[in-house]
Design a protein around this nucleic acid. Structure first.
Lengths: 339, 339
DNA sequence: TAAGTCGCTGAATACGTATGCACGCTATTG
DNA sequence: CAATAGCGTGCATACGTATTCAGCGACTTA
């Protein structure tokens, strides 16, 4: 019983072979005979031997690790549950490919490539984040120029540097708005930050406008309030609209979190949801189906998204070409729109 | 402009010193003169040089990385928002100490120590999880015997192997229950799995019973239903109690997620919250304050918890002794109990 | 002036693995 | 039988850093 961790050399001695053979055997190299391989693997299992990833990575110059950067305001303890789903599915997808996941919520440095790839901490970077986009775009551009391997979950903006994977926000918003219209709603408020900071919300805004115009409804500036994706911002934006005393019969919220705030605000002002005012959200976070009333919303397939993000980043690492693409959203109809 | 990543040797050449001096300078060793050190650091900054963590770790035999294991059912895409808060605060606390965080949601292997410490992926492991505890306890024991560095967020059970940090669940539940009693509620239902699988809920159960008995109320088996921490389980458990037709005027839910399901169920059965039935939860997840009605609940200080978890695991890594301890909870009074 | 001290630097080496290359052995072919 | 090919293995080395030890100059002290 040795006191220190076993190395491939220890295994080699025990198996009566050389260290390189052990290395090959453990990586299932076809170069080593089946007999030898199994013998070595048995001994390794016996000793509970694990390859030292540092030595392995140093030699092979490739860390089997991905970095996940969550670009949310770190000061706020609230993080969108939607990203938690993504985090879960990305972790699982990465694990399936034999990759570990390094998670960070903050931006300690200006140069992510240096922090992760140059430091050999990770072979690729996945970005996740709602909003505050302009804050990051130059850093992303720099990454692209530096030839880093990274992919961003977000809107596919033509001409933008880097690779993107996102949900078809325009389509999702279009379908949700259309649904409200088909239920007879004519004065549909819109809550969400449509500045360049939030290209995702901009896309949803486009879908909203498209549905309005296709059904002959006029856009009303008075029913539009900016908000980022938190309950509180949704609450406040709704309050703002209510104070304008412009009548409305429904609200399209750019995220479920905002919808939660919106519903709370409407209730506190004496409105019933959905009888007086219908509400739809976006994301289909787990809570959506358990609210009162259950929230009609646009579902993004986080499982699929996580798998594709990992698959794409691995392709990039392997030097393959990938296309930015959009995933189809799905309208989930529940009670909050009164259907 | 070299095409490959700069190494400490490159810096050494440029600075006209040897590689060891570069290594020392970059680690702020007092052995190297201020003059030389600043010169080297300037060049390193210039080249955007980053220490190769693999080489560094290999040499020093210490990865500046912690592993975070989330023991939730991986099949379920729903993850308790409470853990997300913890994840955020742990990430930040780890970053402040210069540690990276490796996150995993699944239990790919039976032997976590081998997976992380022996493989030199991480120096320590932090566990996070609600319930299914018995499923992990033997693995935790094995870790303890193997001398691994790990700490678990959870109840402090005397005699249990390993180190724990948790919230004073008994006290929290006691205060919440007492609050209901003081508001005049006399028939308080209890929702939560009190089997050995959930020692945290067992502690909350104790606090609940203590409050009842101290105020001369009798425990009623009919008002007790088991549930794990999801909205759906909370819904179902509430339905079960309702079907027993035993009258009750309030519910203590072992988690906010269950409270959400409980409130939904009560509403669908025509009860008003809090007028007919008051509800309190546990955790104070972000949604709690934005529900209708806002949820009275027991807050756990996730920021403090994350910091202490990291602080403690680092102490363990440094060979110091640590004591398991409990953090004080705080009752957050909102509208769902009708105060 | 010789011995000792202090401050700084470089030479040598180790960390544990992966891989290019050469080598020996057996089987095949002409 | 010689030449060739194929298979399995070992030798040597490289990955980039951190640390031990020795050395060197300058400076103090007797």
């Amino acid at each position: 019983m040795k006191d220190s961790k076993p190395t491939s050399l220890d295994i080699a001695h025990l198996a009566g072979v050389s260290q390189p053979t052990v290395s090959r055997a453990l990586r299932n190299s076809p170069l080593v005979s089946k007999e030898t391989r199994e013998k070595i693997q048995a001994i390794a299992r016996e000793l509970n031997y694990k390859v030292d990833v540092n030595a392995s990575n140093l030699r092979s110059q490739s860390t089997k690790t991905l970095a996940l950067l969550l670009c949310e305001d770190p000061g706020d303890s609230m993080i969108n549950p939607f990203f938690l789903s993504m985090l879960g599915s990305i972790t699982r997808a990465a694990a399936k490919e034999g990759y570990d996941l390094l998670v960070s919520f903050q931006q300690l440095s200006e140069d992510w490539r240096a922090d992760y790839e140059d430091a050999n901490k990770a072979n690729g970077i996945i970005f996740l984040g709602y909003g505050d986009y302009t804050q990051y775009i130059d850093r992303i551009s720099r990454l692209d120029q530096a030839g880093a391997h990274f992919i961003t979950w977000g809107p596919v903006v033509p001409g933008q540097p880097g690779h993107f994977l996102g949900c078809d926000n325009t389509l999702g918003a279009y379908e949700a708005t259309q649904h409200l219209i088909q239920l007879g709603r004519k004065h549909i408020a819109f809550i969400g930050d449509t500045s360049d900071d939030c290209p995702e919300f901009q896309d949803r805004y486009r879908g909203y406008l498209k549905a309005l115009s296709e059904h002959g409804l006029k856009y009303n500036q008075q029913l539009h309030a900016s908000a980022n994706s938190t309950e509180t911002m949704g609450f406040d934006a709704t309050q703002t609209i209510l104070e304008r005393t412009e009548p409305f019969d429904s609200v399209f919220c750019c995220s479920d979190l905002m919808a939660i705030g919106t519903i709370q605000c409407l209730r506190e002002n004496g409105y019933s949801v959905p009888d007086d005012i219908a509400v739809v959200g976006f994301d289909d976070i787990p809570t959506a189906s358990h609210m009162t009333p259950p929230l009609t919303t646009v579902q993004q397939d986080t499982i699929k998204a996580g798998e594709l993000l990992v698959e794409n980043i691995l392709s990039l690492i392997n030097g393959e070409h990938i296309e930015s693409r959009l995933l189809p959203p799905q309208l989930i109809i529940r009670k909050s729109c009164g259907s």
